[in-house]
């Protein structure tokens, strides 16, 4: 594993599964390095989605990568390697959130006081926000709401996968997303429509 070992055994043109096999057989540092370079940044970004704090996301990235490599012998290619890695990533982050009793609204099945029904806010409304506007809006949302929006629009997690990860029904996730988008639009309009006029 040590960095500094001669770089051979794997190369950057290889598919993930081939690198995994090569690593399992020969434990070459180059194989480790390639997988690390491909995935560490993305794991960190997803950990930021869930945990929102850079130091916690860094620690989680270390823990996830260690877990991935210690369990590499269990990965048989039944799914894409990236799917397996991201599943470990989200599950570990969710464990941390549950343990710290944070983001309770993220796991809530029902909203206690549902708002008046509103038309679905189109995705375009969120996707056309400027970066500083989006930062402001995210800062005004609760941690759970922020996580939900980032999972969907930053990480591209499908509703079905979100429901599975959060232990909720798809309909509950859809409803929560709908409400969060509406809230995000309200925050945005309140702050920036006023500035524009």
């Amino acid at each position: 594993m040590p960095s500094g070992t001669p770089l051979k055994g794997c190369d950057a043109t290889m598919e993930d599964m081939d690198i995994v096999r090569a690593y399992r057989e020969r434990k070459h540092a180059r194989c480790f390095q390639l997988l690390y370079e491909r995935y560490a940044g993305r794991i960190y970004s997803k950990a930021m989605t869930m945990l929102h704090r850079a130091d916690e996301a860094e620690d989680a990235t270390q823990e996830i990568f260690t877990r991935v490599f210690l369990n590499l012998h269990k990965f048989e290619g039944q799914s894409k390697f990236s799917t397996w890695v991201y599943s470990i990533t989200y599950n570990l982050c969710i464990d941390k959130i549950r343990k710290d009793r944070r983001n309770r609204d993220l796991f809530a099945e029902e909203v206690a006081d549902p708002p008046e029904p509103v038309d679905e806010v189109p995705d375009e409304t969120l996707l056309t926000m400027q970066l500083d506007e989006l930062r402001y809006v995210l800062g005004e949302l609760s941690e759970g709401e922020r996580t939900l929006l980032l999972m969907k629009y930053k990480d591209g997690v499908k509703i079905k996968a979100m429901a599975h990860l959060l232990g909720k029904k798809e309909s509950a996730v859809k409803m929560q997303l709908k409400r969060t988008k509406e809230k995000a639009k309200r925050i945005h309009d309140r702050q920036f429509a006023r500035l524009a006029s």
């Binding site: 594993m1 040590p2 960095s3 480790f32 690390y36 560490a40 940044g41 993305r42 960190y44 970004s45 930021m48 850079a54 860094e58 990235t61 270390q62 990568f65 260690t66 490599f69 969120l126 996707l127 056309t128 926000m129 400027q130 970066l131 506007e133 989006l134 930062r135 929006l149 980032l150 629009y153 930053k154 990480d155």
Partner: peptide, 29 residues
């Protein structure tokens, strides 16, 4: 879009500031 810009910021921040330290800790573990 701004969400993807946030993702790219995370990636850049990790690569520039944290990648080496995390890799060394993973190797140690």
């Amino acid at each position: 879009n701004a969400f993807l810009s946030l993702r790219d910021e995370d990636l850049a921040a990790f690569t520039e500031e944290r990648s080496t330290a995390v890799r060394e800790r993973v190797e140690g573990s």
